[in-house]
Design a protein around this nucleic acid. Structure first.
Lengths: 347, 347
DNA sequence: AACCATCACGTTAACGTTCACGGCCGAGAA
DNA sequence: TTCTCGGCCGTGAACGTTAACGTGATGGTT
């Protein structure tokens, strides 16, 4: 007979000398005087079990401080209780705000969340997807900016996916977004109402989705200039400098997000132009600090926490639907969250 | 003979009808004409294997698009390739900034990161720890604010831990922090140099660690008032209102972090006091938007990305050390990152 | 020539859980 | 009584991987 060995089992404790062994389902079963399967049933609520033994088993589980092994469980069920969250730039305060909603809702559903930062780089977006897939996550929430629709559909074939802030790549995959169309329309109309005749847009959509841009071209005067750059402060500053250089007549800027708006304000200051007197600036997102900026930022607001919450809620629906093989009907596939304009002083 | 069944195996594709089966290590072995173990060796670089077969196996792995199952692997190795990151408030831009460093460094080491938000609540801090432990993570980076040192030591016994922005709870556990002592000393000295005689502090450490507070009492005049509140904007506003109400003579405020500083500025504005003319405000963290606030925030800077990077680097060291049973010597247990003062206009 | 490392690889046995069954037992129907 | 049926629970197997050990070939040493 071979000598046994325990991988995660008996191991000398790192601090004290007391050994730490993993208590398994068999230990619980033995202690409760039942079989493994009964313990499993008591935990998972499947199968049939009497209320009495169920309580008894649960009590000994508590007593022995038994924790089922995710690995062993995942081996059978292919579930890890994990969700993936893919986003482009955690340093952009917009994402932490929705992440908060994601975390809370995920916890409520018993999920942990693994986060991947992509910098809107196609390679890192697909790498993150692969990683999440291999790690056995049960679903993904993705702010994809570089990957094409086909890639997303392919990913959705392997793993329940909900797309955020982007149109659904196919009728079969769900998406949740801010209502960018009315949001930018509101911003443009506001600028018009303030008497601005020459608007410009600072576009940060380096990738595939151009809802804001299209809405801008639709609402603003024909031929209104658009300059594209990274959706960051420095990107906004560079884009603003370029746009103002090429189009000195512009007196109002609509930015892809608040970060670009901040960059625009910086660039305007450097050129000696005052905001909003010489040039108005309107952002998008309504970051927490937007009201404390100089000048307080006029921007489009959406409930970011709610966005995060809604994302995991619909993802949970997709996961359950796929589990039950309930066709491919995730409900309304393109969900839009209301966008409102918050008028402060920058525009 | 029983009918076989495949948990994650043959399952009808959600979109197309094509079935998706998992390709296992045995499939690779068969295709490459070797045994399972050899395939394992080829992947993991352990054991001895000739360069030729290694390349051949790797090629068929590529060809079959084989991905090892984390579950099966974890079952043997107890490793999931996952790190836990516990923080109090992802909405505070300080944390995303360090998270960025954590993500990048973790990716470089082949780790995924699962993030938990605690709101500095003791219950949620320990819940997150338990969750991470059960999920089979290999280590934890923790910004703990409520848990006591004993709990942290206990956690460290079960799982490699690195504590952030807090003194090491024991010589055996590593910690990395901003050099809060010199950071606040710098801030206080600067305020003194500006002629302020009556300083006050807005403390956000609701929990256990009071480095900033102690440094403040050491550097400021004896009896300088300190008011404690949540380390948020509203917390800072409330704390400032209270402090100024009780101590009208105060002309300079040192805040626990930039968020509280922003709150203080809001409160000051509401009371008709101008910053910095009537009352100076100095923060801590140097958030990305600190320079764009009104007024631009004077604050203490530490490299947050570097903090994140250093955290996973030392955690990786601890993990490796424990694996090799190399005693409990994580090197310098209390690592301090330089803190510098950035003088802008608020103080 | 006999022996012994060393190398390269194969075999066996776990890891801890859930799934598919089968069995038992009591109650009601035939 | 015998049969059936449903409720409750146990048994064996399988999930996919790696640790431990075994084995044959090769090459060098005595």
């Amino acid at each position: 007979m071979r000598r046994g060995h325990r991988p995660g089992g008996t191991r000398v404790d790192a601090v004290e000398g007391e050994p730490t062994v993993r208590v398994t389902i068999d230990d619980v079963a033995r202690a409760a005087g039942v079989s493994r399967q009964t313990v499993s049933r008591a935990m998972n609520g499947k199968g049939e079990i009497s209320a009495g033994t169920r309580r008894r088993v649960l009590a000994t589980i508590e007593e022995l401080d038994y924790r089922p092994s995710v690995f062993a469980r995942g081996m059978r069920t292919q579930r890890a209780g994990t969700l993936g969250l893919i986003l482009s730039d955690i340093a952009n305060p917009f994402f932490p705000a929705v992440a908060r909603g994601v975390f809370d809702a995920a916890a409520a559903h018993g999920f942990s969340v693994v986060v991947h930062n992509t910098d809107a780089h196609a390679g890192r977006e697909s790498a993150a997807s692969r990683e999440i897939l291999e790690r056995g996550a049960e679903g993904v929430i993705g702010f994809f900016e570089a990957l094409g629709d086909e890639e997303l559909v392919a990913l959705h074939r392997r793993l329940p996916l909900v797309v955020a802030d982007r149109r659904a790549p196919a009728p079969t995959v769900a998406s949740v977004s801010s209502d960018f169309a009315t949001g930018t329309r509101l911003a443009v109309e506001h600028l018009h109402a303030r008497g601005h005749r020459h608007l410009g847009m600072l576009d940060g959509a380096v990738g595939v989705d151009h809802v804001r841009r299209h809405a801008f071209t639709a609402a603003a005067a024909p031929g209104s200039p658009i300059v594209t750059g990274p959706p960051t402060i420095t990107g906004g500053a560079a884009a603003a400098a370029q746009l103002l250089g090429e189009h000195p007549e512009v007196t109002a800027l609509f930015a892809f997000n608040d970060l670009m708006a901040v960059g625009a304000i910086r660039a305007l200051r450097e050129r000696g132009r005052r905001v909003p007197d010489d040039c108005a600036v309107v952002g998008y997102d309504d970051l927490t600090l937007a009201a404390d900026l100089d000048p307080p930022l006029t921007t489009v607001h959406t409930d970011k926490y709610e966005l995060g919450r809604t994302l995991v809620e619909t993802l949970d629906g997709v996961i359950k639907a796929r589990r039950d093989d309930t066709g491919a009907t995730p409900g309304p596939e393109d969900r839009l969250l209301p966008a409102t304009l918050v008028v402060r002083r920058s525009g």
